[in-house]
Write a protein that binds this DNA or RNA. Structure first.
Lengths: 215, 215
DNA sequence: CATATACGATACTCTTTAGTTTCGGATCTT
DNA sequence: AAGATCCGAAACTAAAGAGTATCGTATATG
């Protein structure tokens, strides 16, 4: 599904025969993420991942020493995949930028990431390293994007420099997570728009777009 | 720890001998919740729960047909315990009420509930009933409290009736959940106050308490 | 006090799954 | 083409844990 690029050194050099085929690692990691999202860490088995990737179970163990390491690798590799926040919207207004971030593809991506997060939620308490990796790969990209947008708005003087953008940039991700994981309701434009207009814009001091009167 | 009250019918009546001792059910359910919070659903074993409750494993199976049913019961029983939101703060102002909700005990309670939630997060996708039960027992009480406070503020004319209180009442719970489960940072008054003053109050149209000037 | 029954402890069965080993076939190197 | 090695498939091992059965003890009922 995702085309990843692993630094993939060719191990130590054998005189003859084949080299270890690292070209399929991305497929295996993608399969692991799929199964993880569907069944959770404990529900998932190595056989499921191998079957999904059409690889032998032994092949997986030739590359990763354990199930846990495989998952850590799989989560970590999500960080660089599909996060093309390099070109963020730049409409000239904060609201325009935030609205421009609402895209079906982005929503689907978020929902998949949240399913993965749910799958390893119970391990996060016991493995701080995994928790950091999961945050960095699954949530932080979106948070960072929001932060950049707000920072730009500060720099162009649109909003006050006193805004707690570290806090505000967490609102959408955490509300989306709540809605998907707990309420199990779909994330649609209406919901995201009500977050933008009902929460974020007022919080940065930009009044509501339609109703400027208090009474 | 928690003193629960189970309707506890005495099964069918035996002629002689003891009746089934349902007085210890609450202790067992409390033990189950503790182990669940500590190790997650899959990590927890019936033996752990039995040991924690100083009960025999067979005793647990005499009362609950399976591990899953035990957990469902344990989560469900949380709903009525420790949720004395019957007497909510009533300071006369929304901000006063929200600030009055900040109490160390309440924070500890939330954190424990969130650990329980994390423990069964991966099952919520596969068991909608459990998801509803978990939400009703672990998150919804806090959400409902916020909603009541805001509804009162609307009724007394403090804030606009157009406020989306169903949305706004989710903000604190979801942000706290994010902070505890993902960021694994402590929830303190400073954080909650910045939510109130930096997000909620602006969103309901009540300006910041110190700085009323826009420029 | 006698008896039936529920209790806690513990041994047991059976299923699942992580991780290993084996093997025939495919493929790269020389 | 020959040889070495990696591949996928599948059999295998070992450990963990859900659920059951047994047993001696405690206790409520009568």
């Amino acid at each position: 599904m995702t085309q990843l690029d692993i630094p993939g050194t060719t191990e130590h050099s054998p005189r003859l025969g084949r080299k270890r085929d690292h070209t399929r690692d991305p497929e295996i990691l993608a399969a692991a993420l799929e199964v993880l999202a569907e069944t959770g860490y404990d529900g998932m088995t190595i056989d499921m991942v191998a079957a999904r990737a059409k690889a032998g179970k032994a092949t997986l163990y030739r590359r990763w020493p354990s199930k846990g390491e495989l998952i850590i690798d799989a989560v970590a590799c999500m960080k660089q995949s599909g996060n093309d926040y390099s070109r963020l919207p730049d409409t000239g207004s904060l609201r325009g930028d935030l609205v421009a971030m609402i895209k079906p593809l982005s929503i689907k991506d978020s929902e998949k990431k949240l399913q993965i997060l749910a799958g390893l939620m119970s391990m996060l308490s016991h493995d701080p390293g995994l928790a950091d990796a999961a945050n960095a790969a699954l949530l932080e990209p979106k948070v960072a994007a929001n932060r950049v947008l707000m920072q730009r708005a500060i720099e162009r003087g649109e909003i006050s420099a006193g805004c707690d953008i570290d806090l505000l940039s967490l609102i959408t991700p955490s509300m989306v997570a709540y809605r998907v994981l707990i309420l199990r309701k779909p994330v649609d434009s209406a919901f995201l728009l009500s977050l933008i207009d009902g929460v974020l814009m007022p919080a940065v001091g930009l009044g509501p777009p339609t109703n400027g009167k208090t009474d």
